[in-house]
Design a protein around this nucleic acid. Structure first.
Length: 520
RNA sequence: GGGCCGUUAGCUCAGUCGGUAGAGCAUUGCACUUUUAAUGCAGUGGUCAUUGGUUCGAAUCCAAUACGGCCCA
């Protein structure tokens, strides 16, 4: 017996065709080897004339998904799509194929995976094409593809069934190809500069390195609750203690928060640490990196995002938290930000709730977040964050109220956060204690006391600077994507209301009854 | 968590004042040996997200729920 997914007549018809294939031999063959990609052929032969191509008589083997089919009696055109761009047109003539093959082809469906062997030529209308000598069906597709002209536009289906989105939407394929290129660029950028790539625990006994609510999981054999990491920071700095003086990790981290166009519960960061450097060195490095990505990806330093141009070729603006508040709030006076009481009044006027335990630094930061952050359009480094909100950052030598820290903003969004690392173990222990107090007072995002991390610092962390860059947001910026879901292949979604998984007992006798998952 | 909007054929979308549903593409059949969203002719295809209510009658009005989108916190 079997429980059906959403069957319809189109699928039933294709199942009948598959059943015939099963009768006729091996239905899912894997003995075809291609020797070319459509895109490569376009680049290599795209400029050759029809006559030149005829003379060259280049024979090629292509495979891919059947995306277009135009039957005109005893001749047909088809388009196949492989991992390259653009598609290649195939020309078939009944007389040029083995008897019966042309009739088989007429029964194939859009979406089927096919193999073609033939000769490059140019059609009357000038399109580079392959004249088929042999053509085979490799994989029967049972489900109809979306409409060929409008494609798939329903956002929900694009996210839930990314495979269909990728088949249909070149723009979507492009985003993820660029994402791959960005990650590769960053990895090479750091590797060339002598950084070592590391992999640190994703399951942690004490989640650290950021202020965030973690996900909890459980290790059965150890009888131990573990947290999915919210950041790799504390482990990477242990590695610097260990002598890996330049180290990075491209990491998936997890934060138990809501979903939005800017937040996914799991997200990708690059974190890197460099000994004998400070936060200013990392600001310079960040400028170089972002400029390099733009030039490498786009061939220009000007990035167009959501209708605006951002020139990463210019030096990025730099200002402190306090300077930025004053610049964007002409009605606020510097002296009013210097005292807790007057700053709290400003916060209250702005509708920011102030808790009794909040110090001046926290209040200043909230005023900054409320009135400045999303207006930081041009590439900007904001520096001098209060120590109160920067429990892992080194204090500034001249003004210990603030830290040697920066965040980078562009298009109103925070893309990076970096600082000179706090390497004084006693100061760090004190700041952990303050976090634990905050946690006891009900701050769910406050940090834990990580005694092993303090022990590591006590062995001596060299003067170091570290930085994290949000890869998803970076990719959003460079690919002009309005939502984080557009740059994550399988973004988090609520489960579909009722999902039935087909289990065919006749072929898997050991299997139990049909599995049915229903969400309540 | 709050507000607004959406959910109709495989896909993209119409659906007027409440009278049991329509197009294009896909698909099926026929014709067609250089097409480009091929073309021509003829068909098939629907639990109008779900549940309940109002009504003689609901895709349409009301409510709740589910899922999604945008904005806000």
């Amino acid at each position: 017996m079997s429980e059906q997914l959403d069957e319809n007549k189109l699928i039933a018809l294709r199942r009948e065709k598959l059943a015939e294939l099963r009768q006729g031999g091996i239905p899912f063959p894997n003995d075809f080897r291609r020797d070319a990609l459509a895109g490569e052929l376009h680049r290599r032969y795209g400029d050759e004339t029809a006559e030149a191509l005829e003379e060259l008589a280049v024979s090629v083997k292509l495979a891919g998904r059947l995306m277009g089919k135009r039957i005109m009696g005893k001749a047909s055109f088809a388009h196949i799509q492989d991992m390259s761009e653009p598609r290649m047109q195939i020309f078939l003539q009944k007389d040029a194929l083995v008897d019966g093959v042309y009739e088989d082809f007429k029964g194939w469906d859009l979406g089927d995976i096919i193999a073609v062997e033939g000769v490059m030529f140019r059609t009357k209308t000038g399109e580079l094409s392959v004249k088929a000598r042999e053509i085979r069906l490799l994989t029967k597709s049972l489900r109809p593809l979306p409409e060929k002209f409008h494609g798939l536009t329903d956002a929900e289906t694009c996210y839930r069934q990314r495979y269909v989105d990728l088949i249909m939407n070149e723009d979507s394929r492009r985003v993820f190809q660029l994402r791959s290129a960005i990650v590769r660029y960053i990895r090479e950028f750091l590797s060339e500069r002598g950084f070592i790539e590391a992999e640190t625990p994703m399951m942690q006994v004490i989640p650290g390195g950021a202020r965030a609510k973690p996900f909890v999981t459980h290790h059965n054999a150890l009888g131990l609750d573990l947290y999915l990491r919210i950041a790799p920071e504390l482990y990477l700095k242990r590695l610097v203690v260990g002598g890996f003086e330049k180290v990075f990790e491209i990491n998936r981290s997890f934060r138990n928060e809501g979903l939005s166009t800017r937040h996914n519960p799991e997200f990708t960061m690059i974190e890197f640490y460099q000994a004998y450097a400070d936060y200013r060195d990392l600001m310079d490095l960040t400028e170089t990196l972002l400029r390099g990505i733009a030039l490498s990806l786009l061939g220009t330093t000007v990035v167009t995002h959501q209708g605006k141009d951002y020139d990463l070729g210019q030096p990025f603006r730099r200002m402190t938290v306090l300077e930025s508040i004053l610049q964007y709030n002409p009605d606020i006076r510097a002296e009013d930000l210097a005292e807790r009481e007057s700053a709290a009044k400003i916060a209250a006027r702005l509708g920011i709730p102030v808790a009794i335990g909040d110090g001046l630094g926290k209040i200043q930061t909230e005023i900054f977040e409320k009135t400045v952050e999303d207006r930081l359009d041009e590439p900007t480094f904001i520096t001098a964050y209060p120590a109160e909100v920067s429990p892992l950052a080194r204090r500034n030598d001249d003004n210990p109220f603030v830290t040697d820290r920066f965040e980078f903003f562009v298009g109103g969004r925070e893309l990076a956060n970096g600082f000179s690392e706090l390497n004084d173990p006693e100061d760090q222990a004190e700041r952990f204690r303050k976090q634990v107090e905050d946690k006891a007072a009900g701050d769910e995002e406050a940090m834990h006391f990580d005694a092993d991390y303090i022990r590591a610092l006590e062995y001596g962390l060299p003067p170091t600077a570290g930085e994290g860059i949000g890869i998803d947001r970076l990719v959003m910026f460079f690919t002009d994507s309005p939502s984080i879901r557009d740059v994550i292949l399988f973004p988090h979604m609520r489960p579909e209301a009722v999902q039935t998984i087909r289990v065919d007992d006749s072929r898997r006798p050991e299997a139990g009854p049909a599995i049915q998952i229903e969400s309540s």
